[in-house]
Computed example of a mutant assay.
Amino acid sequence: MPDKKPIDSKFDDVARKKVTRRRHSSSKSTRLPPMRRQSLALIQVPLDVDIEVERTIGGIEMGVLQNGMSYLTPAGLEEAAGAARSTVFELSQEWEAAMNGGVFSRQGRISFFHEYLSENGYTHRHLYIEILREGSTYYACPDIVCMAFLEYFAFETLKNNPRAIENYRSFARFGFQQFVYKALGYTPPDKWKYLHDRISIQNGSAPEGYFIVFSEVSGIVIDLINADLLVSEKTIPVFGVEKSWSDHWTKSYFDDVYGARITAVRNPQLPWAYPDEALAEFRRWFRHEYLTTRFPRYMLTRAELLDPKEGKQIGTLHQQKGIDKPSA
């Protein structure tokens, strides 16, 4: 782990100026218009990715998911912020109630979190990301939430909190992700190698008027890489995408909607070619249903891979029918 060097007073001056502008003098609540309230809390389905590495460093539980997302566990974040146990879940309940009701007080801690997280595009229902792991749900607090906690407990509370201040300095100096990567000795894989290694999978091309999954996924993978999101066989398994899309096609009776798919590719694991009329549906499904099981929604929105204006529609979609997962 990087050495923690002392920081001069200028750092504290800058940090305090930064958080001062988030304080409010009015005791009134902020009530959002009805249409805005409906779309405010987006549904974040549990991520179907595993934990790449997780350890306790300096008493703080931290880790990296297979999609490259660095995180602290709720217990690790409470330790880093010098906060009482269950603080993360208590604050998350307050956050969820405010998001669902569309009403945020102009005073108190939830006001600080609302302004901090909104400025960074975080509109999830919880202050943690749920992860499916071997049939059980685990919780990971992403970088934006962790820095909000550390800043609040370091500078916004009346109680002197040297532990929160020290950890805020450490994470802020190195950057949250880089701090966690270095602390855990984690080196992300080469993202371009994933794409290059899979060019050979495409044996032959689809006939005119049809598309194959691999070609479409390759184009979106380039967008993911350019957005600095980690792409590997663990996050975007080509055969897994084909299987999930094939299941979605069958369950939705798309043969009757777009016309029959055909067998046109020699690789038996990527056998189907689909009518071009279904391209828009495939791209919608891949971005809004498949990718959201691999990356948190705020990361995809920040990378401009999801349109935040579609939040209401997508949230309703997830609520009604969930995610089609490949069978075991």
Score class of each variant (00 low, 15 high):
residue 149 F to V: 09
residue 196 H to E: 15
residue 145 V to G: 09
residue 95 W to K: 02
residue 94 E to F: 09
residue 51 I to Q: 06
residue 142 P to H: 13
residue 134 E to F: 12
residue 66 Q to H: 12
residue 176 F to S: 03
residue 172 A to V: 12
residue 130 E to M: 06
residue 114 H to Q: 13
residue 194 Y to A: 03
residue 174 F to Y: 14
residue 48 D to G: 08
residue 177 Q to H: 10
residue 141 C to I: 14
residue 67 N to S: 07
residue 166 E to T: 15
residue 194 Y to H: 09
residue 135 G to S: 12
residue 90 E to W: 09
residue 130 E to V: 15
residue 75 A to Y: 10
residue 122 Y to S: 04
residue 168 Y to P: 11
residue 136 S to N: 06
residue 191 K to A: 11
residue 195 L to P: 03
residue 150 L to F: 09
residue 115 E to I: 12
residue 179 F to P: 00
residue 165 I to H: 05
residue 80 A to K: 13
residue 71 Y to P: 02
residue 79 E to S: 05
residue 105 S to P: 03
residue 147 M to D: 12
residue 159 K to L: 12
residue 107 Q to T: 09
residue 86 S to V: 14
residue 160 N to W: 06
residue 157 T to H: 00
residue 171 F to L: 02
residue 154 A to H: 07
residue 182 K to H: 06
residue 135 G to N: 05
residue 54 E to I: 03
residue 151 E to C: 02
residue 133 R to V: 07
residue 82 G to I: 11
residue 131 I to T: 06
residue 106 R to M: 08
residue 100 N to L: 08
residue 166 E to S: 13
residue 188 P to M: 03
residue 127 L to D: 01
residue 68 G to W: 08
residue 109 R to D: 03
residue 136 S to P: 01
residue 158 L to V: 13
residue 80 A to P: 15
residue 114 H to W: 10
residue 195 L to F: 13
residue 55 R to I: 03
residue 124 H to N: 11
residue 114 H to M: 05
residue 166 E to I: 15
residue 77 L to V: 04
residue 142 P to T: 14
residue 186 Y to L: 04
residue 166 E to K: 06
residue 66 Q to I: 14
residue 80 A to Q: 15
residue 68 G to R: 07
residue 84 A to L: 06
residue 74 P to S: 04
residue 160 N to H: 10
residue 144 I to G: 03
residue 65 L to A: 03
residue 82 G to Q: 10
residue 100 N to H: 04
residue 132 L to V: 12
residue 192 W to I: 05
residue 191 K to S: 15
residue 73 T to L: 00
residue 170 S to P: 00
residue 93 Q to D: 14
residue 148 A to F: 10
residue 152 Y to E: 01
residue 52 E to P: 00
residue 79 E to K: 08
residue 58 G to P: 05
residue 83 A to C: 05
residue 172 A to Q: 11
residue 172 A to I: 07
residue 128 Y to F: 06
residue 162 P to L: 15
residue 186 Y to K: 02
